[in-house]
Simulated scan of single mutants.
Amino acid sequence: MKKGILMVNLGSPDSPTPKDVKTYLGEFLMDERVIDVPLWARTLLVKGIILNTRPKQSAKAYQKIWWENGSPLIVLSEQLKEKVQEKVDYPVALAMRYGSMTIKKGLQELVDKGVEEVFLIPLYPQFAMATTETILVLAEEVRAQHFPNVKIQDLPAFYNNEDYINVLSNSIQHHLKDKDYEHLLFSYHGVPERHIRKSDITKSHCKIDGSCCATPSPAHEFCYRHQCKEVTRLVAEKLNLKPDTYSTSFQSRLGFDPWLQPYTDRTIERLGKKGIKNMAIVTPAFVSDCLETLEEIAMEGEELFHEVGGKEFTTVPCLNSDQPWVDLLAQWINDWAKTPVNA
């Protein structure tokens, strides 16, 4: 059976106009795994409130980071796909969970090339309801409805994979080698606290307190909070960081429900007020730079840091299409190709 690869990232509006941003946000926020409330409440919130106010604001943010050749997330993901294709002997397609580059189109591209076994690679190091899970669920729905003879196997969360940690650590070290920073902040995309509890397969372990993430449990296989903290721990260990020179925070919260803490913006503010003059920030929940890294962190985060007295604010780029990351993906693909899909 012919094998193929489908890499899937988050997605992007087709353009940074309010109209296209509204279409994109509508699909994104109506996903029951993103805003996990009953349909009537989600519809009221998204279509009745958010889509009447947020698109113009978000469009302005997208306009600040939009490149001449398109959305940074799309451009960088396409570059990654092309580089990976050069390293493997199997057709590689790219899709997005939201937007016009659909998973159905990606699978169709592979099927048109005769592919019958697909290695699905969600481009997220950590598992979360609103990222990996929603990709896997939709991919299976599309497969069952349109490509019933295709078999799909997915790449599990790779947050604690030793090779990945090495690639990430080396990238951070490379970008900070000439920087005299006092504190390194690991900023991850936030999720509501209830997502953590919903993903707890033990139904009892996750307390979101100071101990559960460090206490071994089967729940960690699907615990986004644990997996984020573990990336920080493993990278800090790899780079020999002193305990008081790094920390973890969460960004991009929405609404009034409690989200994972500490919040990135408040952490940046606290560090600046504390007297930190030179800080660096890395965003390991993303493998490709996007709105959340280029605008929320590199622009808004830096502005906030300067407002509270900070001087040097260094943003570490995502892995994007760096060759070591490309090589690692190619290695995982070749390893998968040696074994049959169990589906």
Rank of each mutant, 00 (worst) to 15 (best):
N9F: 11
Q126D: 05
G106I: 06
G106L: 03
L10A: 05
A330P: 01
E32S: 15
T43L: 13
I165R: 09
V287I: 12
K56T: 07
A61R: 14
R42F: 00
E237Q: 14
A59D: 02
E296A: 05
T248C: 06
E116N: 13
P192N: 07
K277A: 05
L10D: 04
F186I: 01
C290W: 08
K238T: 13
T248D: 01
C206T: 13
L155N: 03
A343R: 14
P16T: 10
L328F: 09
P262G: 03
S211E: 13
A337R: 11
R197V: 15
G301I: 13
G210R: 11
F250R: 04
K198G: 04
S199A: 15
R233K: 15
N149W: 14
I50F: 10
T23W: 02
D265S: 14
N9P: 08
K151T: 08
K87P: 00
G70E: 00
H175V: 05
E78M: 15
M299P: 09
N160M: 07
R266D: 12
Y62M: 05
V231A: 01
N342K: 15
I74M: 14
E117D: 13
M96Y: 10
T314A: 01
K179S: 13
E117H: 11
K238G: 02
H189N: 02
R266P: 00
K113Q: 12
P192S: 08
K198Q: 13
H189K: 04
K22Y: 11
K274C: 00
M279P: 02
A61N: 09
I121W: 02
Y98C: 05
Y124A: 12
F127S: 01
M101Q: 12
G255F: 06
N161V: 01
S204Q: 13
P122N: 03
E82D: 14
A157C: 04
V46H: 08
S217R: 04
A343H: 11
N240D: 05
T43G: 08
Q126Y: 02
V88H: 06
V282I: 09
K242V: 01
F286Q: 09
K2R: 10
A343F: 07
L120V: 06
L25Q: 12
D20G: 07
K56A: 08
I5S: 06
L45F: 06
L80S: 10
Y188R: 03
G210N: 11
F313K: 11
L136S: 05
R143I: 07
Y90H: 15
T132G: 02
E230F: 00
K311R: 13
P262H: 07
S288R: 12
T17I: 01
K179R: 14
A61V: 02
S77R: 12
L120W: 08
K105I: 05
Q173N: 10
V308A: 02
E68D: 08
C213W: 12
K56E: 06
V316A: 00
E133I: 07
R197Y: 15
D36K: 13
L120Y: 06
A298S: 14
G99C: 03
D36N: 13
D209N: 15
N160H: 08
E140V: 05
T17D: 02
L234Y: 02
V88E: 01
N52H: 12
L234T: 10
V167W: 10
C212E: 03
